[in-house]
Design a protein around this nucleic acid. Structure first.
Lengths: 224, 224, 224, 224
DNA sequence: GATGAATGAGAATTCATTCAT
DNA sequence: GATGAATGAATTCTCATTCAT
């Protein structure tokens, strides 16, 4: 699985930052805050993350925080926006998934890229889940991303399966996303101790066979 | 899908309640609190749920709450214990899943029962997810349940598939659970507007084919 | 040091108890509560003592508590009244303290009796100290007792010393009480690990010599 | 009795204050809180002292309080630490106490300094007594101070008295401390209406004669 | 730009006392 | 007489956000 080179975190600031010109120093401070937020999010989750923690990690002050973000949620939204964008972009990189070996490879590659994304943005995505309950626009962003990904999947699914009554492409797409998302959540939060490659191989297989009509393969891995 | 008759919510109280004799009235109040908690959990999620909300819904006083539960978490744990027990029990009702029609039915039935459980206990399970981040024992209960369910699945999976390198039964089991759980989460939280039966049919198909080596069927439903 | 035979704890109840006829059972319950209060006072001190603790130790209920005492303070006052009475009585048992050996014996005996009282009623007396700050009548009871004891002492002091300017009998009396009280407090609360007899011997000596004009003796104890 | 020039109250803050940089304004606020605490402690005692009272007196907000102290106890501990330090220092200023007039003067001077300290820190010391019951480290600080003072006394006592069996220097030291402490407590809390000089003169005499083997003097005061 | 200080509206929790059976 | 249940005022503590330098 090729690791996608990770682009830098958000250059986007919160509301207050967007109204001002940001010089080099300003951008650096904002970056520090965003990075710190990731760290804190990872350690404590969304609800337990306090502004105080973030500024402490960023080695800056409360006052400064509000110079760049309107409030806690604003910062969080900035992080999420990045993720949403990347995920949506990634979603569209899925080519046709044929039932043969090539299809498996395509799928496996796509999943791998997703996984990388998830691992990188893990804290944000977990926080997302946590925050989803509240009625705010964060929830709406989640829906958009979900839609983007399922849309891409639905396209590929309908391309290739001849479906019976017990199979609804939309649901299958949702099921696929659900599986990937939650599995990575387990992986990150509870330390399911399974090598990531194993997870991806198996997931790819299950989805390839179960959703895209591929056939089970018996290949031996060269390495093992 | 047969709706399982739902048994009553917890008779179990929190720490303080367990140290005292509870008479009829006391038990009734405790039940009121547990029910109220479910309502509030549903409406606001775990973190936003205030003891104040709960006692308001239960039409009782703050003091009374602490007569039965040590704190919010204690109440939550009481609810969780019930769910955990039911889920574990249910997990073991999965019989062998053969690749034929009968296997599909078995799986579909099991998923249906799960779904019922999830719908019934929805608020609690969602809250669970939300609370999982914190390091407390709630997280540990989650792991136990996850283990219970995956164990049951792994047994059935190894019984029936001849696996290649790209397929690890444990991961497949986890993937199955992930899919079901998350899908229901979408269903409950974001109002994915798909009939539950469709979700179950499709999920059953995907898992049957992708995990248990079943073959795609082309049956037509009588109804459609 | 002769141990005074200790009479039973208060038969006096609080306000509500005094308005009713108390049958055998009633008196027993009241006694249970008073005893329990002593236990709790000892373990937690006055401020930390909760009605809940007391009724738990007494194996009775909140409701019952208020059948016998108007409130927490009422119970405490009942205990204190006993102590105050006993102390006052004891105070008057001090005979003339001559500067010779006989005077030492007299003083030593009196201190010993005090000590017994203190040890017996320790928890109550400590609580007294703790409660003294508040302006209520408990404080006033304390003053009365203090007055009773100092009065007795002053009588004996003026009988036997020919005082200069640097010696005020009233202050000397107060100083004596202070010494005894606080020393026992140390003994009970902080486990100063000194045998009680040593404390009494030394205290008696210091007071005999310092307050009553006695002379230092060099007797050897038979035992040592 | 020379009044010792009183140094300013604690520059020491509570736990939270020690983790931060404190600028001039911050230190001022902390001082306001410490002073306010003294006032409240004096008026209501430790247990009845509410954080709310303190911030009201300090004319600041609840939130501010917790910016400088973790809780009421933390503040209290800060005050205590100061007292403990001063007392320990003072304890060691006691020179040899000879049985003659010079010895009396030495003792009297020492007691006077103690008295000043007690009067100055009265509220804190009284609160100390009140809080002592609880098992926390406050109790331990008390023991340390007690030890410091008794140690100093014991040194001087053993230097100068030829002791019989009925006199244990350690106990005599404790008795001395007990007397001073409690007498001042009476003085402060119950308004024993005796001029402080009388108390000190008499106490010094009693201790000098009773503990250090001094002889009663008959001097007339010029004033009376 | 940056910072430490201050704020105050909640939220959780405790516990003496009253009530209904 | 006795009891378990209920109450709610009082208190502590937290933390997002604003302010003054």
């Amino acid at each position: 699985m090729a690791a996608t080179p990770r682009r830098k975190l958000s250059t986007r600031g919160g509301a207050p930052a967007q109204e001002r010109e940001l010089r080099a120093q300003g951008r650096k401070t904002m970056r520090k805050l965003l990075d710190a937020a990731m760290t804190v999010l990872e350690k404590r989750g969304y609800h337990a993350a306090r502004v105080d923690d973030i500024v402490k990690v960023a080695r800056t002050s409360h006052g400064t925080f509000y110079l760049y973000f309107a409030n806690k949620e604003d910062l969080f939204r900035a992080l999420l926006t990045d993720v949403a964008e990347e995920v949506s972009t990634l979603a569209n990189t899925l080519g046709p998934v044929t039932p043969d070996e090539a299809g498996y490879r395509e799928l496996r590659g796509w999943l791998g890229r997703f996984s990388d994304l998830y691992v990188h943005y893990g804290p944000v995505i977990r926080a997302w889940t946590e925050a989803e309950v509240e009625g705010d626009d964060v929830g709406r962003m989640g829906e958009q991303v979900l839609t983007a990904v399922t849309t891409a999947l639905i396209t590929r699914i309908t391309e290739c399966t001849d479906n019976g009554d017990d199979f609804d492409p939309q649901v299958a797409a949702l099921a696929t996303v659900a599986m990937i998302e939650r599995l990575h959540y387990y992986l990150l939060s509870r330390q399911i101790d399974v090598p990531r490659d194993d997870i991806l191989d198996t997931t790819a297989t299950v989805v390839h066979v179960g959703v895209f009509g591929g056939s089970r393969r018996r290949r031996r891995r060269s390495a093992s």
